[in-house]
Design a protein around this nucleic acid. Structure first.
Lengths: 341, 341
DNA sequence: TTGTAGGCGTTATCAT
DNA sequence: ATGATAACGCCTACAA
């Protein structure tokens, strides 16, 4: 069983033509039941596998989806699993590339996947990306592009995301309801849509509860633990320091938590904290950290489904926007009042 | 710029033959500098990209590596990034599949990647796998297989791993040196080589320090937090309970930690704890957990390098075995004595 | 230095 | 119902 068998081999051994074998294999319309049986039997015996390369070359479709993600942290790796699940089911193979949050890398990934002749893309943009021309070029080639999780208004494409505004809102309102008055927000880079939406939610909650927004309490910093740590230290050094912090990711919440501890402040008594993503680590640290949970696996599945739909009717690309609902998980870091009921 | 340009297009526009263009593109030996220049210019203008499918079909090489991993947790995702890094550099594309620790899934992944005509495999076996025939079949097809991280004696292949025995040894000896007397080990499934090696290290450390091994202190359980939690509860319920636990993964260490806390015991005073992998979470929980660190990213890079070597001289496949050194990171959970020096 | 032709494995078109 | 042939895009003897 050295070299994989080909249609040719089968044809030769059966003394029939290539085309007949080909037809028999795909149990086409006109083909003698007997020959079909013979072909099937032999192909079984030779363990025949159609050569995907040849197929793809012929029909100009690789049945491969290029997936670009900024990283493979807990949440994204769940999403990718969701994508994989659905894609496989639908006969697609998935090629995952990490941009490592780098714009240059993202462009490189795009090019490579394009060279690999993927049939389309499912992407979550890097936090560094301010231009989206590389993705637009894909669309110009008439390849379907679905954006997930990190959606951006600068790229017009069908998308799947969670309701980030809602997430920011419930997190903030929860803090307000717990009696916190000066609520700061640790947001990500200014160009990141996800971050801005969550911040909008924060602002909406303030407005609803008639709390004046204080620019000093709104901090943009890099999407990572260390930056969040230092940003929090600065917040806590203010004359009128905040009495609660909403961070738009759990990584940042961890950074904030470390800074708060470093300052000798207690959660939730002295200061409240809510994160975003509901990573497992939030329930392992002391105190456990409240966080906005999102259905990551489901989101991935939805993205793949949307991709396949888009693929199938390229004509009426309605720019569907699917939005899933987040859910606040309340833990120790923000629960100042005893639980109701 | 609708359809990608082909060699044919260039040839037509330049009124020369396909082969000349082909040669010019790969700046082959015999080709008129002028025509070459013309070809280059036009190919630039048309944004020509060689069609990988056609290339692969022709030269029977896809320049793609199939990577199968049990999951994409912190450590493995780092390793995959390492693989990716090196592979890209060498002109290879990587296709990553997760087996989700499932044997059946692993077989499926293998088949799919084989169908995708990958040039070879870099794999880390699932904890469930007891048979390795699916991998042996790959080798019979004469495709290079490199095993990394989770190596198994049942599969003869070049491999990269860390010195797990050493890791188990230093973790255990550290506990002994800290004065712990009854050291339990939470091992993984019995068929998992990694787990057994780490356990061997544990046993060696006991032997070196003339501590009798107590079978009751050796517990096999599934490679995950919940099982570790319950296993630890049982350990702690013993009449003569252990005064230290070495778990062969951090996930399990977390489970153990939760159980220890649940029982109201303190670390390191009442009980010592050391994990394995040095996941970031170990330094976030309270107390921080000592853990054996391994150079995951480097390990991934080494695996890819080894793969490429193997690929290049298939003849003398020397079955190279690369072993990297782990390093114990001491934290609060096991540091009973004051630091020396 | 350049062109012609055959082939990689498959499918689709057109005959037979 | 089956076969011959061209084509997908590229490379490479071999011929010119």
């Amino acid at each position: 069983m050295e070299k994989p068998a080909t249609i040719k081999d089968i044809a030769k051994r059966l003394n029939i033509s290539l085309s007949t074998v080909s037809r028999a294999l795909r149990n086409a319309s006109d083909v003698n039941p007997d020959t079909k049986k013979a072909v099937m039997a032999l192909s079984e015996e030779l363990n025949y596998q159609p050569n995907k390369l040849a197929l793809s070359l012929r029909q100009k479709q690789t049945h491969t989806i290029g997936v670009i993600v900024p990283n493979l942290d807990y949440v994204l790796s769940l999403m990718v699993r969701g994508i994989d699940e659905v894609a496989l089911e639908a006969g697609f193979t998935v090629m995952v590339c990490q941009s490592n949050e780098s714009f240059g890398r993202e462009i490189l990934n795009t090019r490579r996947l394009l060279e690999s002749l993927v049939d389309g893309f499912i992407i979550s943009v890097s936090s560094e990306s301010k231009s989206f021309d590389h993705f637009k070029k894909i669309q110009e080639r008439n390849l379907p592009v679905v954006v997930f999780d990190r959606v951006t208004p600068h790229l017009t494409a069908p998308s799947v995301r969670i309701d980030n505004e809602e997430g920011g809102f419930v997190a903030t309102e929860h803090l307000i309801e717990q009696g916190y008055k000066r609520i700061a927000v640790l947001a990500g880079p200014e160009n990141l849509g996800v971050s801005n939406s969550r911040m909008d939610g924060y602002l909406n909650a303030l407005k609803k509860h008639k709390i004046k927004k204080d620019p000093a309490l709104i901090v943009h910093c890099d999407f990572n633990q260390d930056y969040a740590y230092f940003a929090t230290l600065e917040l806590l050094a203010m004359k009128k320091r905040p009495d609660a912090i909403f961070t738009i990711s759990d990584r940042m919440a961890i950074g904030a938590m470390l800074a708060i501890k470093k300052k000798g402040l207690r959660m939730p008594e002295d200061i409240g904290l809510v994160g975003f993503n509901n990573e497992p680590v939030t329930s392992l640290v002391t105190p456990t950290i409240s966080s906005v949970d999102m259905p990551s696996f489901e989101l991935g599945k939805a993205a793949a489904k949307l991709f396949i739909e888009t693929m199938h009717n390229k004509e009426n690309m309605d720019l569907e926007e699917k939005v899933l609902k987040p859910k606040l998980i309340i833990r120790e870091s923000s629960q100042k009042l005893p639980t109701k009921k």
